[in-house]
Design a protein around this nucleic acid. Structure first.
Lengths: 215, 215, 215, 215
DNA sequence: TATGAATGAGGTTTCATTCAT
DNA sequence: CATGAATGAAACCTCATTCAT
């Protein structure tokens, strides 16, 4: 993982250093991810990825069988990254669900574009139909856990009377809908018309659903 | 119909009939639309479109300068089709906004997949980043009118007290968010896990926003 | 050949008028010639010719079997046009060959670019290798008669002592060489560097060959 | 040769050898040149060049961006070849300009067809109008130096009284005109009628200009 | 005769993938 | 392991030619 480890292994094993290998793999994954997010699957050329990663074209094929494997492998790695901690966090004692959401979701949304999460959503939407495995992985890794967390919050909100209906229990997707919409909107219309402010939209949404003035 | 028209038709009457031309164009547009919706822009081969339209490859180029022109031209024609009549309709005297939405939006959602509207949304999302003109047209033709209609309804709902906040006035997109979400969801996950029922989701959403029991 | 003849024929024959036909053919020939001279054989598209002639593409094929036939037919017609009258003219009594050449060749050279003769030379040179029939026709119709005329003049100049050698009798092409050179030069370099003045070059050539001061 | 060079070679030693690359490039250039000279620009198909060079079509595009770049690149390389040494040579002490020209130009003319010089001239004439860059390069590399050399010889001939006029000083092209004419002639009429003997024509020309019997 | 939409062979170019070094 | 020149299938597009009207 660092140069010393590499040197040590080198000393005893001769031949290519695993550290270097891991680093090469890392370059490829990073370059491929950036390129796929920017240009989509078929808009990405293997030579672009290689150039961006600083390796030769042939090297890509030492790590991934073909372009599709690269695509899926790279996205699998991205999705494996630690996720938004919506599931990890929980309302503080005495904190309303409304207040909790305002406190926790805000930073997530603010970080959406800066991190690659927004770009990943757009990519999944754009390519998911042609790559069912990608869609399924995304669902399993991102959507289902988030839905579970939302459902739990929704139950609590129903119990405490914050929500008047169990709509969010039955369709936890409803809580994510505004965030998804803003993400897609900004991907399409950011150039002409300026981006939509995700936090503002989400706050307005919470007002509408929970009643105004969420403190 | 009169002598001049007759002369004009005569003048054009040498060579192939205009009716046939229009029909050829129609075949091409239909074939191209289907193929683009199924496979996206770069997944579509001109030869596929030609075969599906029952014409030779070269014929495509008599009607559209190149693949990109075909793509944009075809989508322009789809978008020019008469739209969801949300804007045309209005609440009946004494009808609540909640009831109106339940009554009008239901059929639209039910028709979403059968018509091509859902597929068009998915295509715009998938290709919009690479075809800004497409995104912009979609916004102008579909989104902006819908947003205006929603905003008006939202104002009315605020005035009558049905809505507690002006969130929907400021962000009319919020009303469309669930529909968009369901559309994308079904495009991605319909195969595995079965489709989401758009009407049910929207009803639940209305319950959550307006309070339960819409009728 | 004129409208009256056409009308007369029309009156008795019904159907298409030969005059109109001749006129159509003429349009095609003129359009084709211009286009071939400008763009060469393979750079010329049948559709360009048709548009320029104001007829439909199919019409071309009523007059010429294919593109090659059009090319050769059109050039045959051009070459059949009355030629430079070098052969027709002859020195006046008492006029030296040198003086005669200065008097007669000047106008020909001056007319070279304005008429299409220069362009034809360039076309023959450019396409002759691929169209031997063209080269041969050009030789028979243009070159050989000119060479015969030059040879006769050369003989006379040798007899009168104006020329010291029989070089020009053996190779009459030598007299045309400067004109050809200037023609090609101007076709290639006219844009950058300005054209060469054909008359001045030819005068200088005569000076060099016959001795200065041509009167 | 030193450590650095050794390292550099080492660094490059991964992958195919530079020698092979150069050889491939050479094959392509040679094949392309032959084909262009034979068939002209638009008559040449990339697949022909590839086949003749013994490489795949795609390989051509590793060395030249497109057909036009191949054309211009290949001709640039031909023109960069060491030229006819007319400029390098000079009359021996006591040698007349006439004698010098007879001695030096003869071999050049004799070599004209065997080398590709004649074919290049024909190509430049045929394609120059459509490729101004080609014409300009040819002028700069071939014509202008030759013209300068001729002009110098012409001055000397005027000074020594060999030439009676300064025609050749003002228009050095006149000396080349017969050679160009013969070259084009042989390109057009070699098949029918047999080629013209360039040396004989040039000798006759010298006789006519300088007076007979040059030895 | 005249039309011009339609054809489809054939050309140029791209790019994922291989393999000798 | 790494390289990158080479490959060739496959895509886009052009344009000479045909033929129903």
């Amino acid at each position: 993982m660092n140069e010393f480890a590499g040197a040590a292994l080198n000393a005893r094993s001769r031949g290519p250093s695993p550290a270097k290998t891991a680093q090469t793999r890392q370059s490829i994954v990073a370059a491929a991810l950036d390129t796929f997010l920017e240009r989509g699957f078929s808009g990405t050329r293997m030579s672009d990825v290689a150039a961006r990663a600083g390796v030769a074209k042939g090297t890509l094929y030492l790590y991934f069988a073909d372009k599709e494997a690269l695509f899926e492998g790279v996205l699998r790695e991205v999705l494996a990254e630690p996720l938004s901690s919506l599931g990890a966090a929980a309302p503080r004692p005495g904190e309303s669900v409304r207040a909790f959401l305002g406190r926790v979701v805000g930073p997530i949304l603010r970080d959406m574009e800066r991190s690659r999460r927004a770009a990943v959503i757009r990519l999944v939407v754009a390519e998911g139909a042609r790559f069912p495995a990608l869609a399924e992985t995304y669902r399993r890794v991102v959507i289902d856990p988030a839905a579970a967390a939302i459902r739990q919050l929704a139950r609590r909100a129903v119990e405490t009377g914050e929500l008047r209906t169990d709509a969010l229990v039955r369709f936890p997707q409803l809580l994510a809908a505004p965030a998804v919409l803003v993400t897609l909107w900004n991907g399409l219309f950011a150039a002409a018309g300026g981006p939509l402010d995700g936090e503002a939209v989400f706050e307005a949404y919470l007002d509408m659903v929970f009643g105004a003035g969420g403190g």
